[in-house]
């Protein structure tokens, strides 16, 4: 969807284009109305990784905010988030009253369309990737939109080692030893013998898949649905396979 803005005269070259883009951003899911507790606990987290939070756009998520917790003190909340260096720019999942209060703080209201509801894998695949104005699906679907970062591992992953590709895919072009763990929020591609554990969609992305050229894994899992080696048929071992989730059932098929 590109709209070229032109003056009515029609001869000026376009000064901008309107496009859609998807971003993976953190959400602050509020569980309590006590701003002091929020401030204190958030302070601890920020201290652990200050660079992660500095200048980071965040969305305030009110989907599970308890009804009896009173009003959300938006001025305090926005103030304390800004104090930690974050840039709160939107709210989602709030009630009408909460949305009005949020608008008073100049926060965008990200509507219900952006709340992720459990969909069968087929329907989700039909959604346009990053379609519409989707300025922050809150880091829940890292498989959709842009996987900006992918992690590449070139040396063997030894027993006891753990590799985690946060927010993206993992590609391994060496062997993964028995007793090692490879994890990714996105897909896992393994070109050497996969003998350890592979966990794709580690933060719940049900679209994630595991692709391997030689499956000898102890355990494979997509978004928490797993299968151990004993339950993998012998004809699927040692050949190129893909592991994916089909309506919450883990499927392992030859490529």
């Amino acid at each position: 969807m590109a709209v070229n803005s032109r003056s009515s005269g029609g001869e000026a070259s376009p000064a901008f284009e309107l496009k859609a883009a998807g971003f993976t951003l953190p959400i602050i899911r509020l569980l309590d109305g006590n701003m002091e507790a929020v401030a204190e606990q958030l302070g601890v987290k920020v201290e652990q990784a200050p660079d992660f939070f500095r200048n980071t756009p965040v969305v305030i998520d009110l989907t599970v905010y308890p009804d009896g917790a009173g009003e959300v003190e938006f001025p305090s909340l926005v103030g304390l988030l800004r104090g930690y260096g974050m840039i709160p720019f939107g709210v989602r999942g709030g009630t009408k009253a909460q949305n009005v209060a949020a608008e008073g703080m100049e926060l965008a209201i990200l509507g219900d369309a952006f709340i992720r509801s459990p969909k069968p894998a087929g329907a989700a695949a039909n959604q346009p990737v990053g379609g519409g104005a989707d300025p922050g699906a809150g880091g829940q679907d890292p498989g959709h939109g842009s996987t900006i970062n992918g992690t590449l591992v070139t040396r063997p992953v030894r027993s006891g080692q753990r590799v985690y590709a946060a927010g993206g895919d993992l590609s391994v072009i060496a062997s993964v030893s028995s007793g090692a763990e490879v994890m990714a929020d996105g897909n896992i591609h393994c070109y050497g013998p996969l003998r350890g554990r592979a966990l794709a969609g580690a933060r719940g992305n049900t679209e994630a898949r595991i692709f391997c050229s030689d499956l000898q894994a102890e355990l494979v899992s997509v978004a928490g649905h797993y299968r151990v080696s004993e339950n993998i048929p012998a004809d699927l071992r040692g050949v190129p396979v893909q592991v994916y989730l089909d309506q919450k059932i883990l499927r392992i098929e030859k490529i």
């Binding site: 992953v157 030894r158 027993s159 006891g160 080692q161 030893s177 028995s178 007793g179």
Partner: peptide, 13 residues
């Protein structure tokens, strides 16, 4: 063999 593999991981890290 498995314990040696574990030791290799430790040597590398």
């Amino acid at each position: 063999v498995r314990d040696s593999d574990r030791m290799l991981g430790i040597l590398a890290s």
